[in-house]
Amino acid sequence: MTAFIIRRLLISIVLLFFISLISFFIITLTPGSPYPWGELNPKVSEDVKRIFREKFHLDRPLHEQYGFIMRDLFTGELRSIKDERPVLQKIAERLPATLVLNLGALALSLSFGLMLGVYGARYAGRPPDVITSILAFVFIALPGFWVSYLLAIGLVNYAAVPILGTHTIGVTFANGLEVFLDRWWHVMLPASILAIGGIAVQSRFIRASMIETLREDYIRTARAKGLDENAVFYRHALRNSVRPLITGIGMLLPALIGGAVIIENIFAYPGMGRLGYEAVLERDYPTLVALNFVTAALVLLGNLLADVLYAVVDPRVRLE
């Protein structure tokens, strides 16, 4: 167990190194002006450009630039081009909102994906399975921004579901519970829309895994014992869905965080996705490097936790 965790930690450190290289290279190797203003903007003098290059170490060779950026990132000294505030601080401000949104969407994806997938597998090949399969593909094919607008029209006109921000503005709540409920009430719609694709992907994954499991010898044994099909299915086979559930976390997180860029914009939700979009608009590349790095590192952490959790749940893993 300990050896397993240590091994996973070592691999994660290697991955983190590659992640840092990749986030650095997206910014430096892409052709195009490094300046937040236009390359040919006549109002920007050569001096300003030189000071800018020196300040962000753009006059140094690539490997030194990488060293500077990573050092600044880890010491918290990396500053945004736009407002010169430390990038990590800007990200930290957005982190709670992002976690709530993405973990909410993740929970929805895993739970509804499990239900839909198990339901499909239970009726494999029969009409309920065909219908849920098509439904799953419709979910995957739905553009999130489109659903957001369609739902927003409906909800603004016919229901009181909030579609902007994280909390009701200008209202003081009596107690913490009400504040909490207000937050969840606000995050519900964006999280649900964000989860649509995840539910579908996860359901396909669970369905395939369940059908695979049903071919195992121990299922045949259970049936041979004379257990009824429901007991075989829900007691014996379903347990093996822990594996795709946990792998699902690693698969879904990058897609969720990426999709959140669009959803957060539509719902004026102050998360990291919105910060990213603002940074993109301003070509604020220190923020972009940091955001790409931090989000990828978060996904890595999520995977690591999932792996460890998995080893705790499934004794077979420890032997590997």
């Binding site: 990749i22 997206i26 959140a260 860029v261 979009y277 790409n292 996904v299």
Partner: peptide
Amino acid sequence: MRVVDAIMCFPTFFLILTAVALVG
């Protein structure tokens, strides 16, 4: 495969958006 694993950690759409915005 470690490099592939690393790339898979990135939020795909955000990575695409960043790169497209920088290249034009």
